[in-house]
Design a protein around this nucleic acid. Structure first.
Length: 271
DNA sequence: TTAAGAGACATGCTAATCAG
DNA sequence: CTGATTAGCATGTCTCTTAA
């Protein structure tokens, strides 16, 4: 069973969705997650702690308790799916986790941290309540209320960051950092600092991740793919550059990714 | 024969650093 | 917080190898 919930009100601009997953254990035991520059919070409602594997060496892993904050990523990472058959999560918009934590979002770049360390008095309580919840509506309501209570800052991004994010998401291939920067009226120095502070990764890195995501969307559910055409349409200079970027982000060559891809374009089963 | 994938290298840009 | 500086990274261009 799989369900999404989209929040209204002030959370709407920060949270992309709340999601719930429950199902039989997967036949594969690991999944490689593609980077998309969006932070997330995940609760495992089973007893096993959450495991995240070293991106390069998938025999090494760290455990994170039952709830984890995953920061904005520019690299893929590997999770354990064997024990994750009942999981709820909060998928943020880029920069959406910023108002809920004391630290700048850049502290979470390419990392995951146990939520208990960040919300000491809240994380475990919330999980207990989620476990006791009678149905999904209550689960989503609990998470929504908890988030509202955890707001440490105004629930919006700096106007320059908001503007830049929108442009980078809409046309990652057709814009440059400096062009966007000029429009904001901030100095180069200041713009990069604020952007990284709130979104969690540098503007250029964000732009490249969004371009990569556009490729995944383009080839999603397409059988016969002309990779050169995809590369050019998505704004890559040529096929070699496209392949290089694709591997750096995903850990797969384009064809290897496509061979393994499922309906969840950011989750690729391995092993 | 064709397309995927890898790599070398020059040039310009970005991001981090440092001084004030 | 800002401006100047600069190392390192991304891009543009070309060439080469491998697999189908």
């Amino acid at each position: 069973m799989n369900r999404l919930h989209h929040p209204a009100g002030p959370l709407g601009s920060l949270v992309k969705c709340f999601w719930y997953w429950e199902g039989a254990p997967q036949t594969h035991t690991k999944e490689r997650l593609m980077p998309n520059g969006e932070p997330a919070i995940i609760f495992n409602l089973r007893n096993d702690p959450i495991r995240i594997y070293d991106s390069g060496d998938t025999d090494r892993y760290s455990t994170f308790g039952h709830a984890v904050l995953s920061g904005a990523h520019t690299r893929s990472f590997v999770i354990d799916t064997a024990q994750q058959d009942r999981v709820v999560g909060i998928q943020f918009h880029p920069g959406g986790s910023f108002p809920f934590f004391r630290m700048p979002a850049s502290e979470f770049e390419n990392t995951s941290l146990p939520l208990a360390g960040l919300w000491p008095s809240t994380a475990n309580d919330l999980r207990e309540q989620l476990l006791a919840a009678p149905n999904l509506d209550v689960i989503f309501a609990l998470m929504e209320r908890c988030l509202l209570e955890q707001l440490l800052r105004p629930p919006e991004l700096h106007p320059a960051v908001h503007y830049a994010r929108a442009l980078f998401c809409r046309e990652p291939h057709a814009t440059t950092v400096s062009r966007v920067m000029d429009k904001t009226g901030l100095s180069q120095r200041r713009f990069i600092e604020i952007f990284r502070n709130q979104i969690g990764i540098t503007p250029k890195a964000f732009c490249r991740v969004r371009r990569f995501q556009r490729v995944l969307e383009t080839v999603h559910r397409v059988r016969q793919i002309d990779w050169t055409e995809v590369a050019l349409n998505c704004g890559y200079y040529d096929q070699p550059h496209f392949i290089h970027d694709f591997q750096a982000f995903s850990g797969f060559t384009p064809t290897a990714y496509h061979a393994r891809a499922t309906e969840h374009l950011n989750h690729v089963p391995i092993a």
